[in-house]
Structure formats: structure tokens, C-alpha cells
Amino acid sequence: MEQERSVTMKTFHTVAFQYGPGGGNSCPVTLEADGLTGEQMQQMTFQFQQEAAFLLSPTAPGCDVKPRYFVPLHEMEMCVHATVASAMVLVDQGIIQHSPIVFESHYGPLPVEWERKDGEILIRVEQFLPKFQAKRPSDEELCRVLGIPQEALGKGPVESAATSRMKLMVPLAAPHWVHEVKPDFSALWDLCDRCETTGFYIFAPENNRSDNVVFHARQFPNRSGYNEDPATGVAASALGAYLVRHQLIPVAEGWNPCTVYQGEAMGRPSLIRAETQVTGGKITKTRICGTACYEK
């Protein structure tokens, strides 16, 4: 890890994408974790009962830090809210002061830009070019597992999308349906396995907006150790690309932003900004913007 000063292993308890008191997604960030085994990291994460990041020295040239991401039951290839939290800690603790910070991710070098703005550290995490897959349950099965009628389904196809990890995009007709979902989680996890996706991301556009770029969402991560996630950067990034692909938001050359509110049904309101770049009519970049702070 390129550093301006030395540090010893220490865990900082943070929260990312917070939108008001009690909101956001918690993330313990452990610095200088090179001395830990993967099993020890998994055990620590199980004790935290939260998604966690462990920062190691990089092994790839040109990278500043190598993260490992865990949920209570397994390791993950990517976690955007943990990346936002990690970048905040690295900058705030004076360990890295240049931008971008290059994370050595499972998918390759991951530039993370940051700037100080209005007393916060605003962080932009690049993701990757989107991928889509059509494997999905029938509308009848999908609605039965989510506990909603079929008229709750909204505009746009049900399909898995990823800018890192696959999430099944489930458009609903209005925000109230997002909050009225009552999943059968055992059946939902089985559907995730069958559809080869890492979770369901249900979403609906905010009512009475002509620009159609504000959404309310919930994420149910497959077999993670908890049933719902208050803020999911990888899913919001995939949603941004999905919306552009199907022109469900106004699409123009350059960056196409959308705002995602998540965690409301959990009493942990979160705010994520997803941006999808279009060049020559094609998606050329994706990224997530947000902030993190220390958990009080």
C-alpha cells in the first residue's frame, strides 16, 4: 500500500451512502490486514454481522491497495459501499492523499476518485462495462416469491444486469409496491441460484417526476447472512446501465445520472448516485458517487 505514513492494523466502523440519521450501510474497514488469513477475515465479518472490507498491500503494479470484501457467510468479488468507506478512511487518516486511488480489485484495477466538498469527502467509484443475461423466472413465480400481484410489475424487462456482480432487475409500477413486497426468502434464494444472480433488486420510479431519474429500491442479497441490504452500490450501478440500455431514463451523450433511494423500508435511508457514460450511442463507462462517515 502506497502510504504517506505508516499504520498498524486497526478497524474503523463506518457507514456509507447515509441519508439522514440512522441511514446508510455500515462497513467495518480494517487497515493493514496482511497478517490475517481469509478464514480470520471471514470470522471477523461473521462477528461484525455486517459487510466488511480488509485492506492489504497491493500485488499488481500501479495499484495502491488490495481490498478483500466479505459478508457474514462468504467472500465477495466486489462491494461498492465498502470501497467508498475504505477510500474515505484512507484519505481521512492521511494514508493516501492522491486521487484517484487505484484499488486492486478482483476484476482489475479500479480507479476511485475523491474530492473534499462541503465538509465531506465525495467519492466516485468506477465500475465496469455492463453485462446482461435473460435467465429469469416467470412473472407468476416472481410475484409469488415477492408476495405481490402481477399488476405491481412495472415498465421494463426483468433481467439480470451487472457492472461487476449480477443482480436481477425487477421493475415495479410505483414506490408503494417496493415497500409492500413481502418475500419468501427461502424461495427467493433458490430463484437466485437458478437464475445465476447474486440478488434481487426491485425498484420503481418516483411518482410525479417528468425527468424519471429518481428511483426507490430494495436489494435482497443471495445467502449473505441477512435478508436485505440498506445500500447496494453494485446493484445501483447495474440499475443505471439497465435504465440507459432500455431508455427508461432520458439518455444523452456523456454522463447519464440517476438517483437511487434505498433502505427506507429498513428505517436506514440511503442515497446513491449512479452514472452511466454514453459515447457514440454506446455505454462506455459506469460509476457510483457517494460519501461515507464514521459510525457514531
Rank of each mutant, 00 (worst) to 15 (best):
L129M: 15
F70G: 00
R194I: 14
M44S: 08
E151S: 10
T291C: 05
L153A: 12
E253K: 06
A265K: 05
H74M: 13
T232A: 08
N256G: 03
G62F: 05
N208G: 04
Y242Q: 08
V80I: 13
M78H: 03
A162R: 10
E77T: 15
I148R: 01
I96L: 09
I148S: 02
G263Q: 03
E113A: 15
Q18K: 12
P175H: 05
E141R: 15
Q219L: 07
G254P: 04
R68N: 05
K282R: 13
S224L: 10
A85V: 01
Q127A: 09
E51R: 13
E275C: 12
M76D: 12
M88E: 07
V234S: 06
A16M: 11
G22P: 04
M9S: 13
D229G: 09
E140W: 09
G38Q: 14
V213C: 04
P111R: 15
C293L: 10
R136V: 11
Y201S: 03
A52K: 03
P61I: 02
G147Q: 12
R223K: 09
P269W: 01
V214M: 09
H179S: 06
C195N: 00
H13P: 06
Q3A: 14
Y201C: 04
E264D: 13
S160P: 02
L153D: 03
T30F: 08
T197L: 02
P230E: 03
Y261A: 07
G290D: 00
G240Q: 00
A16L: 11
G263Y: 00
L248T: 10
S138F: 13
M88A: 07
G233D: 03
V15R: 04
E196T: 09
P130S: 12
E39C: 09
A274N: 04
S26H: 11
L146N: 01
M88C: 10
H179E: 12
I272W: 03
T259N: 07
S6L: 14
A292R: 01
G267C: 06
C143L: 07
T11A: 05
V112G: 02
G154Y: 08
R245T: 08
V251D: 08
F70Q: 00
E39N: 13
R144D: 09
F54Q: 01
Q97A: 09
Q150H: 11
F103R: 08
P230Q: 01
D118F: 13
T291Q: 06
D34P: 08
P149H: 10
F215E: 07
K66L: 15
F215Q: 05
I288C: 05
A217Y: 01
D92S: 12
K131G: 11
R68G: 02
T14F: 01
M88D: 07
C27L: 04
M44D: 00
P109H: 12
F203Y: 13
D229S: 10
